[in-house]
Every structure is written in C-alpha cells, then in structure tokens.
Amino acid sequence: MRDADTPRQEPTDDRSHPAALTPQQRADLIRAAAAEVRERVQAWRDNPNWRNTPANSHRYETTLGAIGVLSELPEPQTEEALASLADAVRPIVVEWRPSRPGPEQSIYAAVERLWRTIDVHT
C-alpha cells in the first residue's frame, strides 16, 4: 500500500490501449520500446564493469540481432504484418529475465515494457 507522500514507481500511461490503435501506431510503440531496450543493452555493454562471459555475449548479440531484423521489416499495414514485428523482437523477451541490480535490472524493466507492447496482439 502506498501513502499519499509516496510517488508511484511507474508513470501512469494515459495513452489508448494498444489494441485500439492502428497497426502503424502499434508498430511505432514496438519500435520505440525496442529502441529503449537496445539503448540500455548498449549502455550495459559499454559499462566498464561489463563481463564478457558467454551468457552476457549471447544476450547482447541476441538483442542486437533481433533489433536488426526489426529494423529491416516494412511498416505494417495489416495485423499479420504487425505480428511479424512482434515475432522479430520475441527473442529479446525470451532472453531477458530479472537479474542482478544495476544495468541488467534496467534492461529487464525496458524488456517488460516491450513485452507489454507486443503482448496485446500476440
């Protein structure tokens, strides 16, 4: 329970429910959420505390690869085409799970936002 002086942890989202949006608008949300994930993953990779383990390298490469596929897909005009965008980023959602605090936790939060964006129509 939150008292009156405690701010919300997540900002409220006053936008329309993604299912009520056009395929193009939903594609824009997916692309924006994926860009946030990429930015956070790149910051994690560029951090001096980065550990080049096989697991970390795999998650990094999977993320960049999925976002690369997403960037090559045309703007969707139909629900089927929109589903292909969701399929392109699904490896990111599968790869990232809650982890240690710090950069990886912020990545997970961004991945959760991406998941909520694609979950509406998958």
Score class of each variant (00 low, 15 high):
Met1Lys: 11
Arg2Asn: 09
Asp5His: 13
Asp5Phe: 15
Pro7Phe: 07
Pro7Tyr: 01
Pro7Ser: 00
Arg8Gln: 09
Gln9Gly: 14
Glu10Lys: 08
Pro11Cys: 05
Thr12Ser: 08
Asp13Lys: 06
Arg15Phe: 07
Ser16Trp: 05
Ser16Thr: 11
Ser16Asn: 07
Ser16Leu: 14
Ser16Gly: 11
Ala19Phe: 09
Ala19Lys: 14
Ala20Asp: 14
Pro23Tyr: 03
Gln24Val: 14
Gln24Gly: 10
Gln24Ser: 11
Gln25Phe: 07
Arg26His: 05
Arg26Gly: 01
Ala27Asn: 01
Ala27Cys: 01
Ala27Gln: 03
Ala27Gly: 01
Asp28Ser: 14
Asp28Leu: 08
Arg31Ile: 05
Ala33Trp: 00
Ala34Gln: 04
Ala35Ile: 09
Ala35His: 07
Glu36Met: 12
Val37Tyr: 10
Glu39Cys: 14
Arg40Met: 10
Arg40Thr: 15
Arg40Ile: 09
Arg40His: 15
Gln42Val: 10
Ala43Phe: 07
Ala43Ser: 13
Ala43Val: 15
Trp44Ser: 07
Arg45Glu: 10
Arg45His: 13
Asn47Lys: 00
Pro48Gln: 01
Asn49His: 12
Trp50His: 00
Arg51Lys: 10
Arg51His: 03
Thr53Glu: 03
Thr53Val: 02
Asn56Glu: 01
Asn56Thr: 01
Asn56Lys: 02
Ser57Asn: 14
His58Glu: 10
His58Asn: 09
Arg59Thr: 06
Glu61Phe: 13
Thr62Asp: 06
Thr62Arg: 03
Thr62Trp: 06
Thr63Ile: 07
Leu64Asp: 06
Ile67Tyr: 03
Gly68Arg: 10
Leu70Gly: 01
Leu70Glu: 02
Leu70Ser: 02
Ser71Tyr: 06
Glu72Val: 06
Glu72Arg: 15
Leu73Ser: 06
Leu73Gln: 07
Pro74Cys: 07
Glu75Ser: 14
Gln77Met: 10
Thr78Arg: 02
Thr78Val: 07
Glu79Leu: 02
Glu79Ala: 08
Glu80Ile: 03
Glu80Lys: 13
Glu80Arg: 13
Leu82Trp: 01
Ala83Val: 02
Ser84Tyr: 13
Ser84Lys: 15
Ser84Leu: 02
Ala86His: 00
Ala86Arg: 00
Ala86Ser: 04
Asp87Leu: 05
Asp87Ser: 00
Ala88Phe: 00
Arg90Glu: 06
Arg90Lys: 09
Arg90His: 10
Pro91Ile: 07
Pro91Met: 04
Ile92Glu: 03
Glu95Met: 07
Glu95Gly: 08
Glu95Arg: 04
Trp96Tyr: 12
Trp96Pro: 05
Trp96Gly: 00
Pro98Leu: 11
Pro98Met: 07
Ser99Thr: 05
Ser99Gly: 15
Ser99Glu: 10
Arg100Met: 15
Arg100Tyr: 15
Arg100Cys: 13
Pro101Ile: 04
Pro101Cys: 04
Pro101Glu: 13
Pro103His: 14
Pro103Met: 13
Pro103Ile: 06
Glu104Pro: 02
Glu104Phe: 15
Glu104Lys: 15
Gln105Arg: 11
Ser106Pro: 06
Ile107His: 08
Ile107Asn: 01
Tyr108Lys: 05
Ala109Phe: 11
Ala109Asp: 12
Ala110Tyr: 02
Glu112Met: 09
Glu112Ser: 08
Arg113Asp: 15
Leu114His: 01
Leu114Cys: 07
Thr117Asp: 07
Thr117Gln: 02
Ile118Val: 15
Ile118Thr: 03
Asp119Met: 09
Asp119Lys: 05
Asp119Arg: 09
His121Ser: 02
His121Cys: 01
Thr122Pro: 10
Thr122Tyr: 11
